[in-house]
Nucleic acid binder design. Structure first.
Lengths: 339, 339
DNA sequence: TTGTAAGCGTTATCAA
DNA sequence: TTGATAACGCTTACAA
């Protein structure tokens, strides 16, 4: 079997290439008879569209790029998978670009995506503010930013979970569970969303008249080194910490492992809550309270707005905030049932 | 900024398009002087290669497709991410096709990938034996099967973890930990790898003179319904089950949640071991023993052989088995320290 | 309703 | 060392 081209189909069905093209794309007029004839030949030959040629001609590739830091991360793979599913149903191909948080790799990927004439781009999270790096004009690719602030908001549509409120809810929950000295744990505060979560934490303390000071209310940890982290307990004890809001489940779950290594102090002495709502929450011991992000909604919105942007059906410069939910599990349970 | 083409670059640097192409691809001869001139213009204009045109002309797309059931699954996302990383370094783009285990979606994806003139394909796991569906001839796309048997072994290279030995090791470990009545738990045995794991379990029982019978040695569970599974305990009690080899960590971890819901019977009454070596093993309580798959090795081998296949540097019909490791954690610990 | 032909941006052949 | 040009497979005026 050779690779048939539209020209072969034209010859085999005794019509011109133009007609074949019209039939394939159901565009323009042709008789039912020719249509059947052509379709039959296409069926028989197993003809396959050549997208390179089509893209070249139409300057449109039916391809969407996704820039994502790390598909190993549950939240990212969840959202990517959902976006991909929706796009597939819309007949778009997806090129997933896993940057590994490497700025050079990101640049390089964007270069490649541009060269492939992608119709649109979805940027998920990441450290710096995002910019497509091209002079702002009609040639630039429509893109959507999820959980990552664009350098220029008028360039794009910004979609984000309500990180601030989520963090606020988490912190308030700790306080409601009688935590007097809650702190916020994180690995780094580089990303937009982490920064917002920390802000939410801070605001909640203030609203509850609890002193927030950078030195003692924030705890920077390195998950990699957590298992041989000697300084953790002294730090916690010094400030009488009885509640920890970790900015994501990854940090929270590792923290829990460490805290409970010798004695089970979560939730008895320290209550712990994470952020993301990942599956690991169910498996930790005790199970981990968390803030659940609505990835389904984020995925749907992202695709919807991107497609609208591509078809110029909506305007740039919008911001969409997606609500989050507090999921209460055992890691923040009160000590009613102490023996 | 318009999108510059090679023609623009040619004009701006006062040479022909042919020369520009030669410089860009460093192929053919040209003077150092022209090279510098052209490179300078490229730099200044921010010229970007048009891959559609290049692919169309060269019948080569510098793109590799990956067919994968579900990137939510840790093992898959791990391996996909590693493959993608290696391919990126080799200047290949990757199109990740998440089939959701949907046969029609898979077909549709393969159609699309063919239309994009992909240079090669990596197929990861999946239910049925894989076939590219094209008459076997020179036009077919080189592909690698990971953990999924090809319909025709002479068509491809088959790379797989040593599922059989892994399962054998897991089962032997249960027996070494004094389990007298081990069983094997799984959701379904559709995939090649699961079937092999069950085989390994079976053989190990036989080698240890433990009776294997389909009815009582195998336990089919539905993770979805596990939390309200009433029949689980009667089944286990009936056969005096004291050890469970679950064919993957996903099943194992959910099983553990269920088994320990009321009393902690793992590992005291029942020892439990999984397969995959996913991160969740560290978080379950008790931590989950498992068989670790060497995804790094699998990824490296896959890319290496695929590239060789593309460049006709190796031959079809090979099979590569990648060794696995037994990781012992608390879920299979013996009851020395009973109080 | 159908056909002809130009052109999308490359690479590669052939000639200079 | 360079340049002119055909060809890759497709869509789309424009013509018939």
């Amino acid at each position: 079997m050779k690779n048939y081209s539209i020209k072969d189909i034209a010859e085999l069905s005794g019509v011109s290439v133009a007609t074949v093209s019209r039939v394939i794309n159901d565009n323009g007029r042709f008789s039912e008879q020719t249509k059947q004839k052509v379709l039959k030949v296409i069926e028989e030959t197993g003809y396959n569209i050549n997208y390179s040629a089509k893209s070249l001609r139409m300057k449109k590739s039916f391809t969407i790029g996704i820039i994502v830091p790390d598909i190993q991360n549950y939240f990212f793979s969840d959202i990517v998978q959902k976006i991909e599913k929706i796009l597939f149903e819309l007949n778009y191909s997806t090129i997933i670009c896993n940057t590994g948080r490497d700025h050079k790799k990101e640049k390089s990927y964007i270069q490649m995506l541009k060269g492939r004439d992608i119709d649109g781009l979805i940027v998920i999270s990441g450290v710096e503010k995002f910019s497509l790096d091209s002079i702002h004009n009609e040639k630039s690719i429509p893109y959507i930013c999820i959980d990552r602030e664009p350098l220029d908001k008028s360039d794009t549509i910004f979609i984000s979970s309500d990180h601030f409120s989520g963090a606020y809810m988490a912190t308030q929950h700790l306080i409601d569970q009688h935590c007097l000295h809650p702190i916020c744990a994180f690995e780094n505060a580089n990303s937009t969303s982490t920064a917002q979560r920390i802000e939410g934490f801070k605001r909640c303390l203030e609203d509850n008249s609890i002193l927030f000071d950078k030195e003692n209310s924030l705890l920077q940890v390195s998950v990699q080194n957590l298992h041989n982290e000697e300084q953790l307990f002294p730090k916690l004890n010094k400030n009488n910490v009885d509640g920890i809001f970790a900015v994501n489940d990854y940090t929270a779950s590792h923290l829990m492992l460490n805290l409970n290594k010798k004695d089970s102090i979560v939730p008895k002495k320290i209550k712990l809550i994470g952020f993301d709502g990942s599956p690991v929450c169910e498996f930790t011991n005790p199970s981990l309270s968390s803030i659940h992000q609505d990835t389904e909604k984020i995925a749907i919105l992202s695709v919807e707005y991107l497609i609208n942007l591509i078809n110029k059906k909506t305007s740039y410069g919008q911001t969409k905030i997606v609500p989050v939910d507090l999921i209460i599990r055992k890691s923040t349970e009160m000590n009613n049932n102490l023996c």
